[in-house]
């Protein structure tokens, strides 16, 4: 469950990214965030995993009030949220297996559980046979699937994806979306910023459109609504 109230965000350089955002996202929902570039989508998403702090307003995620969250508790928040990026953000010197395992190592999980769980998610994203490969030996789609595996490996309630298909060809993108639907069907909230008209219009989900720092549209089973 995510609740944002009256969120304003102005960056230090004077750019206002969000101008009074109110939103509520329930556990298990699948939400697309759409809108033109620079409208505030990325800021909206970055606030949730505390890579940015709002100038004013309150954010509550899984009963954690981010406004009162101490700096040293931030890692705990991030372990409850899986984040997926357009540029994958994999650790280049670690293999597929090690990249995914890292998210469990930071929680000091028992190695036996780590092994079991990592192989499980690699199977889910279809990369079991690439466990020993390094990121530079993988295609873009494969790298993105590694980062998805890493994001979901410790059973987060929420998965946030910032243009996860932005660097991928259409074929690969559909594969990624199937993984998201699979995760969502197991009860995980998915929040995904995207520019892909095809995806939004084909796999119908809740759509939140952000323009000039405001939510201008919020539909239960919406369309992309922009010319691609």
């Amino acid at each position: 469950m995510i609740v944002m109230k009256d969120i304003f965000k102005t960056y230090n350089n004077g750019v206002t990214a969000l101008n009074g955002v109110n939103v509520e996202i329930k556990q298990g929902e699948f939400v697309y965030i759409v809108g033109p570039s620079g409208a505030g989508k990325s800021t909206f998403i970055r606030l949730m995993y505390r890579e940015a702090k709002p100038t004013s307003g309150s954010i509550i995620i899984n009963d954690i009030d981010l406004g009162e969250l101490k700096e040293r508790k931030v890692p705990e928040l991030r372990r409850q949220i899986g984040v997926i990026f357009q540029d994958f953000k994999l650790l280049p010197k670690l293999s597929t297996y090690e990249n995914v395992a890292f998210a469990l190592e930071v929680t000091e999980e028992h190695p036996r559980n780590i092994r079991k769980r990592v192989l499980e998610v690699l199977d889910l994203v279809g990369l079991k046979n690439k466990a020993r490969s390094f990121p530079n030996e993988l295609s873009g789609g494969e790298q993105q699937r590694v980062s998805i595996a890493r994001a979901i490996v410790n059973h987060p309630k929420i998965v946030i994806a910032d243009e996860p298909t932005g660097n991928l060809d259409p074929e690969t993108s559909w594969g990624i979306m199937r993984v998201f639907e699979e995760i969502n069907s197991r009860g995980t909230t998915i929040i995904m910023a995207t520019h892909s008209k095809e995806i939004v219009n084909t796999i119908k989900k809740r759509v939140i459109a952000i323009e000039d720092g405001l939510i201008v549209r919020d539909e239960r089973r919406g369309d992309y609504g922009y010319e691609a």
Binding site: P75, E76, R78, R79, L91, P92, F102, A103, V106
Partner: peptide, 12 residues
């Protein structure tokens, strides 16, 4: 890499 580690939930 340090930035990525922090995003994945590694403590300082």
């Amino acid at each position: 890499e340090i930035g990525i580690m922090k995003l994945v939930g590694a403590t300082n």
